[in-house]
């Protein structure tokens, strides 16, 4: 049987990779992909907890479902924003998008 800690550790590693990607890469699309990886890691945790801590109800899985829903919405809007920025300013590097700057 799979120990719970395996699931958790592999989720933590996936999250770490996603985090690294989101921080280190400058391409907006790639950052979005990295964020999806992090959300997947969260889902892994939720499903793991659901399986081990409360085997008789599926609350964790339902939560994971909601996370997937929100992730889909986020991807749609995020990519639309990126498209818009690329069209208007002809850059997709977040390095070049610094309107928040002082």
């Amino acid at each position: 049987m799979i120990p719970l800690s395996w699931v958790l550790v592999s989720a933590a590693l996936l999250f770490g990779l996603g985090l690294y990607g989101a921080l280190a890469r400058t391409n907006a699309v790639r950052i979005l992909i990295a964020i999806e990886l992090m959300l997947n890691a969260v889902n892994l945790n939720l499903v793991g907890f659901s399986r081990y801590l409360s085997p008789h109800d599926v609350t964790g899985q339902v939560f994971a479902l909601f996370v997937i829903t929100v992730a889909a919405a986020e991807a749609a809007v995020g990519l639309a924003i990126i498209l818009m920025i690329v069209r208007q300013r002809d850059v997709s590097d977040v390095d070049r998008i610094n309107l928040l700057k002082w």
Binding site: M1, I2, P3, L4, S5, L8, V9, A12, L13, F15, G16, L17, L19, Y20, L23, A24, R51, Y52, L53, P55
Partner: peptide, 28 residues
């Protein structure tokens, strides 16, 4: 980049130590 790598590894390591320290129930 060094800093993102450090932060990501640090985060995973912290989570790992937390998981290590917590007693988990076995599979039902």
């Amino acid at each position: 980049g060094l800093a993102p790598a450090a932060v990501a590894v640090g985060f995973a390591a912290v989570m790992y130590s937390v998981y290590r320290a917590t007693p988990w129930p076995g599979l039902p």
